[in-house]
Amino acid sequence: MTPRAAIITIFAAVFGLAVVTDLIARRAGSSVRPLAATLAAALRWRSARLLILATWLWLGWHFLAR
């Protein structure tokens, strides 16, 4: 396996893990809340809002403008 293929596999695995975690979290009785609910809870704090929105802005700059 080339380094490039290994890196793509790692990124896919992390993304897949996030998707599977979210799907499990949406099942009744799960002890983990889905990503959207966790983010919404974090956004109740102004410092977290600032951090999350700054990350969102950085992602836009990084992927679309830089």
Binding site: S31, V32, T38
Partner: peptide, 12 residues
């Protein structure tokens, strides 16, 4: 928003 427990925060 409904608060979430530490486990959820830690996982994400």
């Amino acid at each position: 928003a409904e608060p979430v427990d530490r486990r959820s925060a830690a996982v994400w």
